[in-house]
């Protein structure tokens, strides 16, 4: 390497693609195929956006990650969950129910306020937020609070055309017979547009369809 290049590098005037730093600290998602595409897993802090329908496995995909986040002894907070969370399922997945808070705010403002307080306090590891209306400024504010409190905020929204928010990671989930198909919409310090199919066969064998050839499933219709 010539002396000029070395000098420019030292003065931080030259940027090289191959020594790029990760934009965030990654925590394994528990799914090897996902980890490989996301540079190690989900970000440990900051905003994660999931565009997903309800009930297709969006929470199951996050559970190993949430369990690791909670292992530090900090809280897991569910804000405005769509229905009554089930203790059996959470406990079976290894979530510590003693460090779990459920908040049911009255309106969108209260919801965002609660999320910000939780993130900012530093005593929460992860906050899950269902169906908020988020403006760009509000998302930025939550992102800052999350970085300050070293917490992660997972925003679950219906798939739609949204403005791009300042998030660390944005994923679109769609249902597949064997699990989920994950499309990376945005990744800080990485490429978007990749699609990963993840299989739930290992973690949730009962919640996967068998091969279509062996489909002996019953079909029930409401009567």
């Amino acid at each position: 390497m010539s002396a000029i290049i070395a000098q420019l590098t030292r003065r931080q005037l030259l940027w090289q693609g191959n020594n790029q730093q990760a934009a965030y600290q990654a925590l394994s998602s528990g799914f090897a195929e996902l980890d490989a595409r996301l540079g190690g897993g989900f970000p440990a802090t900051g905003l994660i956006e999931l565009q997903t329908d309800a009930g297709i496995g969006e929470l199951r995909v996050m559970l190993p990650y949430l369990k690791q986040q909670q292992a530090s002894g900090r809280l897991l907070v569910l804000i405005a969950p769509p229905a009554e969370p089930c203790a059996d399922m959470l406990a079976a997945a290894g979530i510590n129910l003693d460090a779990l808070l459920i908040i049911s705010p009255a309106n969108n403002n209260a919801m965002l306020w609660a999320a910000e307080q939780c993130l900012h306090s530093g005593c929460c590891a992860s906050v899950l937020l269902w169906q908020p209306q988020l403006s760009l400024a509000q998302a930025r504010r939550l992102q800052l609070a999350a970085e300050q409190g070293a917490a992660s905020l997972i925003v679950l929204r219906k798939p739609a055309q949204y403005l791009s928010l300042p998030v660390n990671l944005s994923l679109a989930l769609t249902a597949k017979a064997q699990g989920l198909s994950v499309k990376v919409l945005k990744r800080k310090g990485g490429w978007a547009g990749e699609v990963v199919n993840i299989s739930m066969q290992q973690h949730w064998p009962a919640l996967c369809l068998a091969d279509s050839s062996a489909a002996t499933a019953l079909t029930a219709v409401a009567g």
């Binding site: 809280l75 705010p105 306020w113 307080q117």
Partner: peptide, 29 residues
């Protein structure tokens, strides 16, 4: 750690604004 509040302090803060009933925990019976 970066905690500025303890978990119980956070709960008090949330309860003060959102009301007593809005915050809860879950237990397995």
């Amino acid at each position: 750690s970066v905690a500025t509040l303890s978990p119980l302090q956070l709960v008090s803060l949330l309860e003060a604004r959102l009301g007593r009933g809005a915050i809860s925990s879950l237990s397995l019976q």
